[in-house]
Design a protein around this nucleic acid. Structure first.
Length: 571
RNA sequence: CGGGAUGUGGCCCAGUGGCUAGGGCACCUGGUUUGGGACCAGGGGAUCGGAGGUUCGAAUCCUCUCAUCCCGACCA
């Protein structure tokens, strides 16, 4: 490819609203152009890379016996009504009427479409297991897209769905997908960790997310450096130990104006972990009082899952008052007719300071079981940095990551309602057991840039680089020898199967080098009169030192380098 | 959906009631230059996001509207 003829342009300055490194570099390097909120066009350089990522994903999906299908972008609403999701999903699903006034939706995920295919074809356990996948554009009207390609509304996603006759078979296949995912990221040159994750409203029996670890990630991860425990904060647990003191008598104390845990603790000269935090939520339409040790935070995801509700909001002051409590001094002590959910941390701790349910009053020495009680003692707490690992007890650390994929044991949630059944060995109908597995292609692409240390240049892993080699010819018009050497090298590179981009433009050296920094070819070859005087072409592999290689040795040396780079990405 | 902010050539920005709306980058022409975003000269390109209003006069003030960004809520 001659750069002088390529559809390509870099920019010296970047729109002020690009904040993430990947967003800035991809705009600056002429990879993407924003068309609307969360909607992008992709230039040839970007698309070459995206297609390579897709090819790797295809190979690995085919490698675990997946079959690629193509599913509709626009679907009749009736299909989504079968699972109730037409009604359940909010405005993130785009709805419209077709010319005949039929209700339609844009596909934001494809469980319904693929289950519809499965029930059409699958009759017997003999056809199982089977996995279908698609690599297609989806549209979700995200309430908040941001971060360049990291969180967008229109995006290409690889979505895979597997169908099984038993939970054991799903479990076994899930592990195969898990391994295939690690191979995909490895081959794309992206380091990821897989963390246990929330199954959320999708139901299901288990899920993992694949995370590219970076400060700019949206998700908070809890990891143990000692034993390898890794979980999304949404589901992470900690091992807590409690000192039990003999219960002492409750005693009211005046705490004028002390509403926060910090204020109360300081005022009474105790630590936050010696207090009890009471938080009122409205879940669905019912009030719930959640009780937790003062130094801990309530994990609303855990709470939602426990309650089995989708909507969870802090209760309003008047609701709290109606329930017999005083905002800022709320307490489970003496409370009637309110559902109380107690975190283990509060149930196991003794002699805590709790609210007095009276203005400016707290109560010392409150103990679970004696002073208040509940049959619902569960884990609804958020793990803090440094708490003990639930597996090995060593301190946990907190980090952040970008979710670049997820795998999910769906179970029969969709097959049941859509009547996707098979006949077992006994001729009896059973619901298909499903798993689903997603990878955001564009997000993976951007994440590779986001996690790189360099801030002014991109170096693509060779497997997904738009071009394997960039050849830079300097001052070609000035010196016929240089021009000849550069074009001859270009021809040889092409003849030897390299994906080469030749910067033959009539620009100054600095300009070309800056562009090359953004184009990110892992192999860079520079030919100018200086390099020729020094004995050939100047070669840089990634960020390694530049070296001079004679024109005769150039092709074999580059072949070796290319092979080595690919080898490093092999599992 | 709440809170905040911004819209001025392709990109970054200046201009806050008064002459023909400026500069840098990018682009075109000619010339010089060629190892880290070159230089000189000339040139093209804007109904100042849109609509309405106030005024002798609006990029500038008012109203509405659209778009985009950030924080939060939400997220299959």
């Amino acid at each position: 490819m001659l750069l002088s003829r390529y559809f390509f342009k870099t920019f010296k300055e970047v729109p002020g609203d690009a904040e993430l490194k990947s967003h800035q570099l991809l705009v600056k390097g002429g990879y993407i152009k924003q068309v609307g909120t969360g909607i992008f066009s992709y230039f040839p350089v970007a698309y070459r890379s995206l297609k390579k990522i897709e090819a790797i994903i295809r190979q690995e999906m085919d490698g675990i016996d997946g079959y690629e299908v193509n599913l509709p972008v626009a679907m009749p609403a009736s299909l989504w009504s079968e699972t109730g999701r037409y009604e359940a999903i909010g405005s993130e699903m785009v709805r419209f009427d077709d010319r005949a006034g039929r209700k339609m939706v844009l596909g934001m995920t494809h469980e319904e479409a693929v289950t519809d295919l499965a029930r059409y074809v699958i009759n017997s356990y003999k056809q199982l297991p089977v996995m279908l996948y698609q690599i297609q554009t989806k549209f979700r009207d995200e309430p908040r897209s941001r971060g360049g390609l990291i969180r967008v509304r229109e995006f290409v996603m690889k979505d895979a769905y597997s169908f099984h006759a038993s939970l054991e078979d799903l479990d076994a296949y899930y592990e195969k997908v898990h391994a295939a995912y690690h191979r995909i990221y490895k081959r794309c040159g992206l380091d990821v960790i897989s963390v246990a994750s929330d199954v959320g409203m999708m139901g299901g029996t288990g899920a993992h997310e694949f995370m590219a670890v970076t400060e700019s990630g949206e998700d908070t991860l809890i990891v143990c450096d000692s034993c390898g425990y890794q979980a999304n904060r949404e589901v992470a647990q900690a091992k807590r130990t409690y000192e039990k003191d003999p219960p002492e008598a409750m005693k009211e104390v005046a705490t004028p104006g002390m509403k926060s845990i910090e204020d109360v603790a300081e005022f009474l000269g105790v630590e936050p972990e010696d207090t009890l935090k009471a938080v009122m939520y409205t879940a669905g339409k019912k009030l719930v009082l959640c009780v937790i040790r003062g130094d801990l935070e309530i994990n609303e995801i855990k709470l939602k899952n426990y309650l089995g509700v989708k909507d969870l909001v802090f209760a309003q002051d008047d609701e709290i008052i109606n329930a017999g409590m005083v905002p800022g001094f709320a307490s489970p002590v003496g409370l009637k007719d309110v559902r109380i959910i107690v975190d283990e941390s509060a149930a196991e701790s003794t002699n805590l300071v709790a609210g007095g349910n009276k203005k400016d009053v707290h109560i010392k020495n409150v103990n679970f079981g004696r002073d208040y009680t509940s049959t619902e003692v569960v884990d609804i707490s958020t793990v803090k940095e440094g708490e003990a690992c639930p597996e090995c007890g060593k301190p946990l650390t907190i980090t952040r990551g970008i979710e670049v994929g997820n795998i999910f044991k769906l179970g029969t949630k969709y097959s049941k309602v859509m009547k996707a059944v098979f006949l077992n060995e006994n001729g009896k109908a059973e619901d298909l057991i499903m798993g689903c597995y997603g990878i955001g292609v564009g997000r993976l692409f951007a994440s590779v840039v986001e996690v790189q240390k360099e801030t002014n240049r991109i170096i693509w892993p060779i497997s997904i680089a738009p071009f394997e080699v960039e050849l830079i010819g300097l001052a070609l018009e000035k010196d016929a020898k240089v021009k000849e050497a550069a074009f001859e090298t270009y021809r040889k590179l092409k003849d030897n199967g390299f994906e080469v981009l030749f910067d033959d433009r009539k620009f100054s050296p600095g300009f070309k080098f800056k562009d090359a920094d953004l184009l990110g070819a892992p192999l860079r070859v520079t030919i100018g009169d200086r390099s020729l005087k020094n004995g050939g072409a100047e070669v840089q592999i990634g960020t390694e030192e530049k070296i001079i290689i004679s024109l005769d040795d150039l092709i074999p040396e580059l072949k070796k380098a290319r092979e080595q780079l690919f080898k490093e990405l092999d599992s």
